[in-house]
């Protein structure tokens, strides 16, 4: 436990002495800003349209949470898929390249402590990166205070955000494993990016295919499993999906680190 904390602490200090997390935070905030502005403009147009057609349709389904905040959080999931490789790539690959892996493997530390320490620190930075998205509900909450109270449905937003965090946790575990397989950060980043994007888009292919292939691809698809969270519903199958990815990633990372001894 102490070793895990020491390793996590060192990882965090190394992260923050490199410009990488700051660059990611900047990218995340800028993207969120663009999306937010775009979504608000779209929402505005919808509201105007609904106003003109007021007598024909019921405009009560138009609300900030469903039309602005949740899409914003959803896009943040893709942002996480793109940011995660940059954070996970160095975790173990860099140790091998710098020869510091020898230090860790000859210190009285268990591989599992090493893996968890690395994982926790990576998760923390990635969570901070996607937390930039949280500007959306906070801003809108401040500006949408009306007669009916806040325009933000916080309970839904919280669940959506929890779903997003689950996805970042899963991505980091898989990224850690891929980083443990190579001593090149670039290779680790490219392969992780490939895996995350595939996990993100395989559902689209799945929708087009028939039979078992379509079903399996659908099950593997990340957006499919985020969908429930984005509606404010916690479904057991989604929680199981993401936690299985975390467990699988950590287990494989541990195996890969242990396997270094057996070359």
């Amino acid at each position: 436990m102490r070793n895990t904390l020491s390793i996590a602490r060192k990882e965090l200090s190394v992260y923050f002495t490199t410009p990488l997390p700051y660059a990611l935070f900047a990218v995340a905030t800028v993207f969120t800003g663009f999306f937010l502005v775009g979504l608000i403009q779209k929402f505005q147009r919808l509201c105007q349209l609904a106003g003109q057609l007021g007598q024909y349709i019921d405009a009560s389904f138009l609300n900030l949470t469903d039309f602005v905040i949740l899409p914003c959080i959803q896009q943040s999931g893709l942002l996480a898929a793109i940011a995660a490789p940059f954070l996970s790539m160095r975790l173990i690959a860099e140790e091998k390249r710098q020869r510091t892996f020898e230090l860790l493997m000859t210190a009285p530390v268990r591989s599992v402590e090493l893996v968890i320490g690395k994982y926790v620190s990576g998760c923390l930075i990635l969570a901070l990166t996607v937390a930039a998205t949280f500007i959306a509900p906070i801003l809108l909450d401040r500006f949408s205070l009306g007669v009916q109270g806040s325009g933000v449905d916080w309970s839904t937003v919280r669940v959506a955000f929890a779903g997003l965090l689950l996805w970042t946790a899963a991505a980091m575990a898989l990224g850690l494993f891929i980083s443990a397989l190579t001593d090149s950060q670039a290779v680790a980043a490219i392969i992780s990016l490939l895996v995350f994007i595939l996990l993100w888009v395989c559902g689209w292919v799945g929708q087009g295919s028939e039979g078992i292939v379509g079903t399996v691809l659908g099950y593997l698809s990340v957006p499919e499993h985020l969908e429930g969270f984005m509606k404010g519903i916690v479904r057991l199958q989604d929680v199981v999906y993401f936690s299985s990815l975390v467990v699988l990633g950590l287990f494989l990372s541990h195996r890969a680190v242990e396997g270094q001894r057996w070359v």
């Binding site: 070793n3 020491s6 602490r9 060192k10 190394v14 710098q98 510091t100 210190a107």
Partner: peptide, 19 residues
Amino acid sequence: PVYLDMTVRGYLEFCARLK
């Protein structure tokens, strides 16, 4: 086996904790 992005003190403290 040194971390180029760490200070000497930070590195040695990390190693001491690992030990």
